[in-house]
């Protein structure tokens, strides 16, 4: 798989890069917890850094400095994520394409999946659906128009009992719940499903644009195959001020949620300020592709050293 992946990008003149796994600032996201590494050489336990949750910041800094298209296969770390399809340390395949729009990048992701999973993900079985269409058709809910009460009613009808402490103000929390517990298992049953046009609140580091009906949507896609989320792509946000505000908003939600405020990556913000060329980027969970390729049910079946045995 590694060799096929490297050949795939070599043929497309995308440069393989390596960037540091440790950094002092992070890409602040509401629902991503980095692991912290303490440098004890100073003796006070206060000199610390973060293990990357993805190589996004450094790779964007490369693109901003004129690297052209770049890809990376690397280990990333996410605290508290352990389960059937999660291991706190895992392998990410991430790449950035200056000048690409989302459609071009989705085509390329589809081609890569067809290369790595020829039986499960042939090009002919690729499908695209919008976040709204998925929820309207399969959960009876318009994610862009619904309120929390409606979400609670739909959960009850779908047989989902929301966790007791779920934030009653956040529609997104209910949408995540319905996606995770009701919709996801059926996504991409026959071939890769590209889910597009997310609610703007879920934009993270993607641009917000208007869809055909004039509704603001996040220019993002996620790819599902056999109910497994494989990839997450953005038309990358280029505006440093907007990005700084989103980091701050994510930190406010984190604090309200009882979690740590995280230091934003100032170097990334500076790179955006200096000018990131228009580009699209995507992160692919490499272990999950291996899982589907093997027909495994649990990451433990294919990892020689899963976290519960470390």
């Amino acid at each position: 798989m590694l060799r096929s992946t490297r050949e795939f990008f070599a043929q497309r003149d995308v440069l393989e890069v390596e960037t540091p796994a440790l950094s002092r600032g992070v890409v602040v996201e509401t629902h991503l917890d980095p692991m912290v590494v303490v440098d004890e050489s100073r003796g006070d336990g206060r000199d610390y850094a973060f293990l990357q949750t993805s190589p996004e910041a450094c790779m964007k800094r490369l693109v901003a400095s004129g690297s052209g298209p770049v890809y990376q296969l690397c280990r990333v770390f996410r605290a508290g994520e352990s389960g059937r399809f999660h291991n706190p340390e895992f392998t990410m395949l991430e790449w950035y394409r200056p000048g690409f729009d989302l459609e071009q990048l989705m085509d390329e992701v589809g081609d890569l999946l067809a290369t790595l999973l020829p039986d499960l993900a042939p090009t002919s079985r690729r499908r695209t659906t919008s976040y709204r269409q998925l929820f309207v058709e399969h959960a009876g809910l318009d994610p862009f128009a619904c309120g929390v009460e409606e979400c609670i009613d739909r959960c009850a009808e779908l047989g989902i009992e929301p966790p007791a402490g779920l934030d009653r103000d956040e529609v997104d929390a209910y949408l995540d719940l319905i996606l995770s517990l009701h919709l996801q298992a059926g996504l991409g049953a026959d071939g890769p499903l590209f889910l597009i046009d997310f609610p703007p609140d879920q934009a993270a580091l993607a641009q917000v644009r208007e869809d055909a009906a004039g509704t603001p949507v996040a220019a993002r896609f996620e790819v599902f195959l056999r109910g497994v989320e494989l990839a997450n792509g953005y038309l990358e946000l280029l505006d440093a001020d907007e990005q700084r505000q989103r980091f701050a908003a994510a930190n406010e939600r984190r604090v309200a949620d009882g979690r740590m405020r995280l230091p934003p990556d100032e170097y990334l913000l500076a790179a955006l300020g200096a000018g990131l060329p228009s580009c699209a980027g995507v992160a692919v969970g490499f272990d999950r592709i291996a899982l589907l390729r093997r027909g495994a049910d649990h990451l433990d079946e294919l990892m020689a050293f899963p976290w519960n045995r470390m």
């Binding site: 352990s82 389960g83 059937r84 999660h86």
Partner: peptide, 14 residues
């Protein structure tokens, strides 16, 4: 025990 989490979303344990 199952852990589920959309890439950018909130985790849920069932």
């Amino acid at each position: 025990s199952e852990f589920r989490k959309p890439g950018k979303g909130q985790a849920v344990y069932t």
